[in-house]
Design a protein around this nucleic acid. Sequence first.
RNA 1: GGCGCGGUACCCAAGUGGUAAGGGAGAGGUCUGCAAAACCUUUAUACGUGAGUUCGAUUCUCACCCGCGCCUCCA
Length: 494
Amino acid sequence: MPLRLYNTLSGKIEDFHSIDGNRVRMYACGPTVYDYGHIGNYRTFIAVDLLYRFLRQSGYDVRYVMNITDVDDKIIRNSARDGVTVQQYTAKFQQAFLEDSAALNIQPPVLVRATEHIKQMADFIAELVKKGFAYRTEDGSYYFRIARFPKYGKLSKKDFAGMTDGARVDVDEYDKDNARDFALWKAPKPGEASWDTSIGPGRPGWHIECSVMSMEQLGPSFDLHAGGEDLIFPHHENEIAQSEALSGKQFARYWFHARFLLVEGQKMSKSLGNFFTIRDLVLKGHKPSSIRWLLTQVPYRNQLNFTFDGLKSAASSVEKLRNFKFRLTSTQFPAGANPAMAQLATETTTRMKSALDDDLNTAEAQAAVFDMVRKANAAFDASEVRKEDVPCLLSALDKFDEIFDVLKDDDQPKMKAVLAWARAEGREEDISPELQELAGSAQLSDEQVNQKLAEMQAARNARKFTESDTLRAELIAAGIIVENTKDGVRWRRK
RNA sequence: GGCGCGGUACCCAAGUGGUAAGGGAGAGGUCUGCAAAACCUUUAUACGUGAGUUCGAUUCUCACCCGCGCCUCCA
């Protein structure tokens, strides 16, 4: 079954076919680096990450480009406020974006930056002027003439038919022809960052960068264009207008938009106090894997309610999956094979694939793997798992993790990094005891843990329970989870 | 006002014209020196309200109530 995706352009779920065989070219709108990214930003980035991973798992060779908007009004305002250049101001937040993305296991796209494409933007605008799609105003700004592009509104399903530019055509050089015409280029203002270009001094409008960079990287027509739902209008609508006006060809074929999330049932906003960056959550002691999991739990087109209960619940879910893998890889099984296990693994993989084929139904894909975990665990308990079953089950699990990427227990170093960052930023008061505990539990090396465990076992065997309980308490205090099973003692880090 | 989305158990949340996935939490159990951890089992006569279509609706249609998004720079 082919991948089916909701296409904002058609308003329908469509079969996905790439333009060029098994090659897929996709572009996603990335962050504006004026601040640390929040969980809403990362919901979108993770949704696109899942799409990227699933396309590759489905056999496509994917070129995935994402822009970084490193110049805009807020950046200019804030850098002026801080008395630094635009580049100096954004460097820190670009770095933070890369770190946070890595912490959430977002696979890196090809990154392109607006400030590195100023010349191309000027050329692009000059070409639009030549073709009559853009005009210059008296102050030296450039606007796109919407009335020249009849399909304007096709993505956002807005009707601009009533808008003409006839009445004010004679004031062309003084003002915008039409209130809806949007800025391609903004004339410089005193004290603001500005670039000298062939079309005059100034700085780019917001939309032009994505047209220029996507077409430069992927060609005038490409397969997929992604972003948050708020970008449908005006940003993506304007990108289509500019790009198609210039090339005369269809710009992106499939438009993929992730829905906004809610935080504790309300729209995220600074005034409500429910506005969180990834770092805020880690500082509160939440693992990056919990955040990633929570953000993948609800299919990307549905509203996701991000709550702290949900975050705890996500942590438990990830634990359950990791425990399963741990059990699979740390147990000695009797030789042989139980055909039911291979079949279970195959069924799970099939169900997972058809779930993701169905417009990335992550909830259903996760349900499939949890069903497998439960059934396999039951088989474990009944001693019905054999040695040859392990690779089958592991392979299904790995296939799942190629998309969701939460099984590897790499939370601790990431949390340590946030801890170090918070100290460097002078935010000690924001560091929760939970983070201290989780980030600090590597105080004991593996050897030391094994040593203590051996001592504990010796004490237990000698029925010196007071002594063994003391050792156990020490280990727990160091963030080590000790499991006594009928096969012996196992441990892992919290 | 225009366009669009959603209301499913204690919480989160899939899904289907034929009688409700999954996760968390709770309860019970297995294991254990006791615990913990882990695992298993279990938890919706019911899917916002009312009406209609249908042999049959949570699933389709209409109305209403509630929540949410976009409508010029917020992912």
